[in-house]
Design a protein around this nucleic acid. Structure first.
Lengths: 186, 186, 186, 186
DNA sequence: TATGAATGAGCCTTCATTCAT
DNA sequence: CATGAATGAAGGCTCATTCAT
């Protein structure tokens, strides 16, 4: 009969590629359609079946976390440069916000009970803390600003951007961040 | 079998009470579960049938508007005091945010196309503008801060609080606002 | 307190007027929005409360019947003229179709179990039968055409028109009726 | 408690069968209860969940189209016989009407805005037109009868039958069509 | 292991019908 | 008697999740 032209089962070898494709797709979909976008749309965008998504990520938070993870890695790479100040680091984060808005919003410790989230958040907080602790890397930040203030600033920006439709998002991000920066720089 | 213990029809007399109960319930539900909370949960919380909600408020925007309206009125009352500075006004708004974080989310112009929303938002913006235009009522605000900067600050706080679970909300609001205020005061 | 500016209760005297208004409104509403239009829209159009509608007409069929009744009366008036042929009578009915489409469709004897419908239908059938029985009043009708053929022709036109949106209804009615007439005239 | 005996997931293999069952069920339901019958009743009649219906047919028009499509195919098969006259073709259509009266209701251009519908309707019209253009296949039709007259005749029959309860439908269809045919044959 | 179909719960919305005033 | 608010059932539709193949 040979009816349904199902996508071929590419075997176990495809697993890592699928995982990566899912993360890439999720980043895009979350950025475009918000954190509440249908999971099916992510699978579709990644070109895989729904089941694969569930195999790799048992729930929405899991895949969100994976996207976030990638973001953090990028930030960590920048931060590894000993000359980078907090401001440099923040610039990278803000640039990522379009895609990671939803995840940073999850940083509120009370917002979840997923331990993995604490872990990832802790990495980010630590990253910033290390910069803050180094007087040469504090950039223009006020003396009494803590890592959690910085995180909160990002979280606020992220939360707002998550509700801002793409056309004006870029511009809104710039205006808002300059306001927040002033608050941090004091 | 005695299955459906249909709620008693309390008659037209109940209308104003129902309306008030719905607004009260909506304020609560929006605050607890965000602006996307099921309308049915509002009806349930108000102790009325779904139909009553729809009779009083034909759509989500309408009831949100009603909640918002109440908030604005309170703000306007404070603002009417000629001695009140922007900072006083903002303090009231921020105090409201802790309990009804979601309502400013509607200020995002892209979030809706309901003209009434613009109108109400305009009232708020105007209110702030009038204070800003009076040098004696600018409080500690920087000279170049506009009403839309102020609104944006509120929007950011609101958006974040909407994602913050109640226990830590109060405290988060305070910390975040002090950061934003510093940005506005510059 | 004097809140709700409810329409005044005009007392028992208003009953007949209300009934008439309801029928008038129903005719209009059915014609504009089809037989499935919300009953509430009829009450609204008539300027009365829902309860009044239910007092006078316990269900949709009842009010439909009342509209139909009025139509029949008009037809009977025309038919009373001894010079009127079947064709004259049919012309009146067809002219009424815009408003009565839905009711004539109900003429199908198997379509309902409401005895009043049989009764009204019977009046119409009789009316036509009497004309048919008079050789001078048969107009151009074929010899073997019966009243039920005539009714069926009307019913078909009515049923189709009920599904035809107003703009083209007039024209469609003319074209369709000329086809049916040819069938009746043979 | 053993409440919800969830239907077993019969797997992807069931897809074609489900699709067919849905079409079969839709044909039946539309015929019995008219074109406005609840879609959920179709799903139930087909023995599948609501979601399956929506997966195969995203909206009412789609499934109606599928039913219609089958009908048209049958008609096209008959029409393919070069000896078949319009009358033969019409006989098939009318025979189908008795069992699936509702489907021609969709021919009303004002009833929908789905372009696929026009396309399918066009196939039917063309089919008839081709027969009409061939003098040997016009059957007994009057010289001035056009395809759209034919369609209209069918539409009227269909509309009436859609409102006729099953028991008498068959007989009504025969009587009505003979009337219409006379109109077309003139 | 990947696929994508199947499932049903859940939300939104509309209306027929009831009933306190 | 009239009013119009209250009620909830019903239908449309969308997903998160499961699971046969």
């Amino acid at each position: 009969m040979a009816v349904a032209p199902r996508r071929a089962n590419r075997g176990p070898r495809a697993a890592p590629g699928n995982r990566a494709a899912l993360i890439r797709a999720a980043r895009l979909v979350f950025a475009e359609n918000g954190f509440d976008a249908p999971l099916s749309s992510i699978a579709r965008a990644a070109g895989v079946g729904q089941g694969v998504l569930y195999r790799h990520f048992p729930n929405r938070e899991s895949i969100a976390l994976a996207v976030f993870e990638e973001n953090i890695c990028e930030v960590e790479t920048i931060a590894a440069d000993p000359d980078a100040t907090v401001d440099h680091v923040l610039a990278v984060i803000v640039a990522q916000l379009a895609s990671s808005a939803a995840f940073i919003a999850m940083l509120d410790p009370a917002g979840t009970d997923d331990p993995r989230l604490f872990q990832v958040a802790w990495r980010l907080i630590n990253l910033i803390n290390r910069k803050l602790d180094d007087p040469d890397r504090r950039g223009a930040l006020r003396a009494d600003v803590t890592a959690s203030d910085v995180i909160m600033a990002i979280a606020m920006l992220a939360a707002m951007l998550a509700k801002t439709a793409p056309p004006s998002r870029e511009e809104t991000a710039i205006r808002a961040w300059s306001l927040l920066e002033r608050g941090l720089h004091g």
